[in-house]
Each structure stands twice: as structure tokens, then as C-alpha cells.
């Protein structure tokens, strides 16, 4: 595409955005400023959706804009949400009086010099010669995270799940034996057992063992099927959400 064509395309997009913003105002859906915001968002949605046809400069523009804005937002949130309250306010409380008054009158905590030091050390990764020093801070992060997660994951995602698989195969209620309760418990028991057999590779999947492994595959397929069904619903929800925005919020065709 030559530069003249690109200029024309940009001119047409801007002009149509202004016209559509005026149309938005004419529908009594808000001010001209609202119209510009809503129209810009609608155009960006269309730019992103244009990728479904094929990769193109409009998609690239919207994608890069998103990445840039996200990075800037992340950085700002990181500074004001983490650095200022968790470090600056702890070491020099008086300096945050304007933004975090609740923390301004507390005593300085010199313990926070340690994370400050580790933070600086982590940045040494940018130095070609002193990069190895950053491993100290990384070792601290890895060690703490591993220690913190190990016990919790073990309890929440392993022991409690195993514990809950140990079920009575015959579900007795006050009214007698519950058929569906028993069926459900047996299904869970057999499903878990066969699923585990499928992932046991030290023995060849033949005979009874092979049969159990095949049932294990079936159980896995059922799980993937349920997951796929939910995924389709999620994607359609997102599509419907965007369509509602384009045809409802923007063009006012859907009430």
C-alpha cells in the first residue's frame, strides 16, 4: 500500500467515526464525547474482528495499541499499587501523605530495606557483567513461592481430592438405597481408577489392564467434551457481548 492510499484510508475512518459519533448523539444516547469514545471502541472491535478474514494493518494497529496501553497500565498499577504502599510508605511514611494518608503517620520500618536491596539486586540482571547477582533475589522468590505453595496445593488439590474419592459404593439414605447416588459414586470410583490406569505406563495396556485403560480414555474424553461444550458457550458469550455492543450500545439497533 502506498502512503497516499494509507492517508485516504485514515481520512475515511476518522470521517466515518465523526459521522457515527454525531449519529450516536442524534439517538439521544449521550454527549458527543460519549459518542467519540463509543465509536472508537466500536472501530477497535471491528479492527480486531477483521483478523478473522485475514491479518491486516488495522488488526495490527489495534493489537499494538492494546499491548502498549496494557503495559503502561500494568506499570502504573505496579508502581502505585505495590511500590508506593509496600515500600515507599514503609520506609518513608511521610512522603505518601498526599496519596495514602492512612499510612502517613506510621513509624518507618527499616526491615523493608531488605526487599529494597533484593529489588535492586534483581535489576542487576540488566547488567552484562553483574547479572549473576540477580540470582540471589530470584532464589528468594523461588524458595518462598515453592514453600508457600507446596503445602497448600498438597492439601487443597491432592489430599482433599483423594479423600473425596473414597466414597461408599452403595449410597444409603433414610429412605433406603439411593440408585442415582450409588451410580454416581460408582462412576466416580471407576472413573478415577481407570483414569489413573491409563496414565500408568510401566505395564503394557493389554488384557484387563488394557480394558481399564480404555475406560480411562473414555472418561477423559467425556471430561474434554464437557470442557469443550463450556468453551463454546464462553466464546459465543463473548461474540454475543461484542455484537450487543456494536448493534446495541453503538448503533442502537438492539434495544
Amino acid at each position: 500500500m502506498n502512503p497516499k492510499t494509507i492517508k485516504w484510508i485514515i481520512f475515511v475512518i476518522v470521517l466515518s467515526a465523526i459521522v457515527l459519533s454525531v449519529y450516536f448523539v442524534s439517538l439521544d444516547r449521550g454527549s458527543f464525547r460519549d459518542g467519540v469514545f463509543v465509536t472508537t471502541a466500536a472501530f477497535l472491535t471491528l479492527f480486531i474482528m477483521s483478523f478473522l478474514y485475514k491479518d491486516n494493518p488495522y488488526y495490527k494497529f489495534a493489537e499494538h495499541l492494546f499491548v502498549g496501553v496494557s503495559a503502561a497500565y500494568w506499570m502504573t498499577m505496579g508502581f502505585w499499587g505495590t511500590m508506593v504502599p509496600n515500600l515507599v510508605a514503609k520506609l518513608w511514611p511521610g512522603s505518601v501523605r498526599g496519596v495514602l494518608p492512612a499510612l502517613a503517620d506510621k513509624d518507618p520500618s527499616l526491615w523493608f530495606l531488605i526487599p529494597l536491596f533484593l529489588g535492586i539486586v534483581l535489576l542487576m540482571r540488566l547488567s552484562p557483567k553483574g547479572g549473576w547477582i540477580s540470582r540471589w533475589a530470584l532464589a528468594f522468590i523461588v524458595g518462598t513461592t515453592a514453600g508457600l505453595n507446596l503445602i497448600r496445593y498438597l492439601r487443597s488439590d491432592f489430599i482433599q481430592q483423594v479423600n473425596n474419592t473414597i466414597l461408599p459404593l452403595v449410597d444409603k439414605t433414610e429412605a433406603g438405597i439411593s440408585f442415582w447416588g450409588s451410580f454416581s459414586n460408582i462412576f466416580i470410583f471407576v472413573g478415577v481408577l481407570c483414569g489413573l490406569v491409563y496414565f500408568f505406563f510401566s505395564k503394557e495396556h493389554k488384557g484387563f489392564f488394557g480394558g481399564a485403560a480404555r475406560i480411562g480414555i473414555l472418561v477423559l474424553m467425556l471430561t474434554f467434551g464437557a470442557g469443550f461444550g463450556y468453551t463454546v458457550m464462553a466464546r459465543i458469550s463473548l461474540l454475543a457481548g461484542r455484537m450487543t455492543y456494536l448493534f446495541g450500545d453503538w448503533l442502537g439497533l438492539i434495544k
Binding site: 482433599q160 470442557g227 466464546r235
Partner: peptide, 17 residues
Amino acid sequence: LTGVMGADYYQYLQSGQ
């Protein structure tokens, strides 16, 4: 949860978590 995540969390419902 979003639909994509839904199926992955039923086990926690069954376990009472």
C-alpha cells in the same frame, strides 16, 4: 466462572471446597 473454566472446577464442588 467463565464458561471455559467451568468444567475444571466441578471437582471442588464435589469435594465440598
